[in-house]
Amino acid sequence: MKKYEYFEATADIGLKAYGNDINEAFENAGLAIFNIISDTSNITPLDEIEFEVTSEDEVSLLYDFLEELLFYHETEFMLFSRFDVKIDENFHLKAKIKGEEINWDKHERKTEIKAITFHKMAVKKTDHVEVQAIVDL
């Protein structure tokens, strides 16, 4: 199974991430986000940040989770490449994310993400889980 793929959106970029369960799909969505900003294969998982979020449904939780990633990227000045997500039945998410401080001599400089949008945002569950989001660039 592919971890994630991108699709075209008028001005911006969309992502679909897959997983055997919702945790894995969210983790792969995190990876897809940082592969828009930089090249994740070149981000060493040195330092860890932990956070928790609670939302009212799975789609909102996806939004809040991805927004949280942008928040730590900008405020800690870090890029991330490892994501460990645990979601419980009350839409409560615990994440441990690993990465390192930005060093533009080492890391590829791609595109800034302004925000996550609700446009076509979805969490689809079949025999596997697919999550979808469009980011505003």
């Binding site: 928040f71 900008e74 405020t75 000045f77 595109t111 800034e112 302004k114 660039l137």
Partner: peptide, 17 residues
């Protein structure tokens, strides 16, 4: 506080896009 934290390091920068 989150908006302020994002705002503090970026004041005086052009951004991307």
């Amino acid at each position: 506080d989150k908006a302020k934290k994002r705002g503090i390091p970026q004041l005086g920068s052009l951004g991307s896009g």
